[in-house]
Design a protein around this nucleic acid. Structure first.
Length: 403
RNA sequence: GAGGGUGUAGCUCAGCUGGUAGAGCGGGGGACUGUGGAUCCCCGUGUCGCGGGUUCAAGUCCCGUCACCCUCCCCA
């Protein structure tokens, strides 16, 4: 078989790279304005880190991790997400001791051994951010507003859904109530949900099976079981979002697949794709569970490929100048090209063979904004012929005066 | 991990009941060493995804395999 990339591992090129960069650049610019600092994390970590953070019984850990042993027999894994590594770094470098709170963001490839589909790859890319050390809902509001701004500046239509899962105090009671409710309705649940009911009852809430959805409508809701402080936190968050004019939808069935979430969880759902493009939430116990001091935290991750899929038009690049040498004028033409580049222009020096006709066809093909035609006449006079490729107008101007 | 679909030239695809591969677009070249965004002319041996089988003969049938797409699981 011909040489080929590994299943689920894809190249990104052509127009896709423009979309990819736009998503990445937009997210970075929003994050920068919110003063998040970048951290570049390793792609490989001890597998244990993910088992302990994401949760032993989750699908990500059980069947989707790329796990392998190195030469010393250490059990390593390709990171399936970015939060665990960020938390590990936060603890390892004792960032909690340096500032009252810390805001970080990361970008890079993540790996999950899943069945590839549209917008789903085994190597995909996320840009994510985390806030450590703030328990106030203002941090939740900031993070959600970052998500909103990213979507907004990208012109992408997605609905932000929020929910609260409660904390150590109130979640157990809810879990119990839900379990009991589900037990009475077992005959209405799908096969998956019957087994899920014990292992991870919350997940039954967002099952797509119709009969499950019908059943779940009457199920107890997380928000009805929140303790006073969780309730206050959630209400305050909603107030803040309203104040910030961030549209959101409360979805009492929203739960997340990772074990570490507490209180606020949220997703940006693109209805056109019927998929989640950005997701996140609070994880107030994770830092402590991984060996750090008790530190409330929250974050989110953007699926770059998925957002790219929603990007309609790609940004026009800066207008291209194509320098067309014609005859024995190579040196002079090259000089002109350099001058333009020094002025910051995007310049292609044409290596295309053939007459002027072919050259202009080539310019057209590259979607050049201007053709800088340089023949022997031009060289003799110390000028160039600048042709506006859209209007077709052209004029001779001095080499130094092209803008 | 389960189910379904697809796989022929760079791209989109045609190829009927098996007989030895085509079109459009793109690309290259050309009466044009000075003018493009539907001027004209010329140019296609590509492992018909891969491997095996049936057959005198397979792109065309059978089996396997790989990849992609869709649904489920799960998730960004």
């Amino acid at each position: 078989m011909a040489l080929q990339s590994v299943r689920g591992f894809h190249d990104i090129l052509g127009d896709d790279i423009l979309r990819f960069k736009k998503v990445s650049g937009t997210a970075r610019s929003v994050l920068k304005r919110h003063n998040f600092e970048e951290i570049v994390l390793p792609v490989v970590e001890y597998a244990e880190l993910f088992q302990r953070s994401i949760g032993e019984v989750t699908d990500i850990v059980q069947k989707e991790m790329f796990v392998f042993k190195d030469r010393k027999g250490r059990v390593l894994a390709l990171r399936p997400e970015g939060t665990a590594g960020t938390v590990r770094a936060f603890i390892q470098h004792k960032l909690y001791a340096k500032r009252p709170y810390t805001k970080l963001f990361y970008e890079g490839p993540m790996f999950r051994y899943e069945r590839p589909q549209a917008g789903r790859y085994r190597q995909f890319h996320q840009i994510g951010a985390e806030v450590f050390g703030v328990q106030e809902p203002t941090a939740d509001a900031e993070v959600i507003s970052v998500v909103y701004k990213i979507l907004n500046s990208l012109g992408i239509e997605a609905v932000i859904e929020i929910n609260s899962l409660g904390c150590k105090e109130c979640r157990p009671a809810y879990r119990q109530a839900l379990k009991e409710f589900l037990s009475t309705k077992e005959e209405n649940l799908c096969k998956d949900c019957v087994s899920r009911k014990e292992r991870n009852p919350l997940r039954v809430l967002d099952c797509k099976e119709k009969s499950c959805q019908m059943t779940v409508k009457d199920a107890p809701k997380t928000v009805d079981f929140l303790c006073d402080s969780c309730n206050e936190h959630f209400n305050k968050l909603k107030e803040l979002l309203t104040e910030l004019s961030i549209p959101y939808r409360e979805n009492s069935n929203l739960v997340r697949g990772l074990d570490y979430y507490t209180r606020t969880v949220f997703e940006a759902v693109a209805e056109s794709l019927d998929t989640t493009v950005i997701a996140g939430g609070r994880y107030d116990y994770l830092v402590e569970e991984l060996g750090g001091p008790p530190t409330p935290a929250l974050g989110f991750a953007v699926g770059i490929e998925r957002l790219s899929l929603l990007l309609k038009e790609i940004e026009e690049q800066e207008g291209l100048y194509i320098v067309i040498p014609f005859g024995n004028v190579q040196g002079y033409a090259l000089e002109v090209a350099e001058k333009l580049r020094n002025k910051g222009k995007r310049v292609e020096f044409s290596y295309r063979k053939g007459g002027l006709r072919k050259q202009l066809e080539f310019a057209d093909k590259l979607r050049a904004k201007f053709a800088v035609i340089i023949g022997e006449d031009e060289m003799r006079e110390g000028v160039v012929t600048l042709k506006d490729m859209e209007s077709g107008e052209q004029s001779k101007i001095k080499a130094d005066e092209i803008v």
